[in-house]
């Protein structure tokens, strides 16, 4: 049982500023309250590949999960559930790409969530805009006896992740806007900006 969804968002800022803001969004002291589910972030590994110029990073992101259905609360023994996610990223500043894969490390016996994101210069305005794409898949691995209610969990997880993903996008917009770097440009929105997260 797999659920998947995609989102796109256009940032009206150049790639280098958006990529910078993406690093800062979880770790700035003034991170907005909309990201309050993020409890802790640690960098576990970093490596700059001298030949390619690519930056490889692995971070752990500890989050408070959305409220679980009652049968899972009984199963894991608590209301507030803390989950560790592992985020692996590759940044290529020459081609201006940033690719991020995040998976949950906790509760994998019950649910597997994979989120793939990328930041690229927008083809319509590569110097001024950045396009963010994200694909999320959620696979629930139910016990046989729980199969009937697992569909509900899948939907709950999807809705919860969806809300959080939207919050992340809007929070990043805020970070870019308040960055101490150069002032934002005010270009025309491209037509498919309307596609940004429902």
């Amino acid at each position: 049982m797999v659920r998947a969804y995609k989102q796109e968002h256009v940032y009206c800022h150049p790639w280098d500023r958006v990529a910078t803001a993406s690093w800062r969004k979880f770790t700035d002291p003034d991170t907005p309250a909309v990201l309050s589910h993020v409890l802790d972030v640690h960098t576990l590994s970093r490596r700059l590949d001298a030949s390619s110029g690519h930056l490889h990073t692995v971070r752990s992101i500890t989050v408070r999960s959305p409220t679980l259905p009652f049968f899972l609360r009984r199963l894991v023994g608590g209301e507030a559930v803390v989950c560790h996610c592992i985020e692996t990223s590759v940044v290529d500043p020459r081609s201006r790409s940033m690719d991020i894969v995040a998976v949950n490390a906790s509760l994998r016996g019950l649910i597997e969530v994979e989120e793939r994101s990328s930041y690229r210069p927008h083809p319509d305005n590569p110097e001024g805009w950045t396009i963010f794409r994200q694909e999320t898949s959620i696979r629930c691995k139910p016990f046989r006896a729980l199969a009937a209610v697992a569909e509900g969990l899948n939907n709950a997880a999807l809705n919860g992740s969806n809300r959080i993903a939207s919050r992340g996008a809007s929070s990043l917009s805020g970070s870019v806007g308040t960055s101490r770097l150069s002032p934002p440009q005010t270009p025309q929105l491209p037509p498919f900006d309307a596609l940004k997260m429902a």
């Binding site: 500023r17 990529a19 690093w23 800062r24 960098t43 940044v91 020459r94």
Partner: peptide, 16 residues
Amino acid sequence: CFNRWFSEKFSKGYCD
């Protein structure tokens, strides 16, 4: 340190 390096150098292509 990382954020400063990333924003001022790395993201602008100074990645050596």
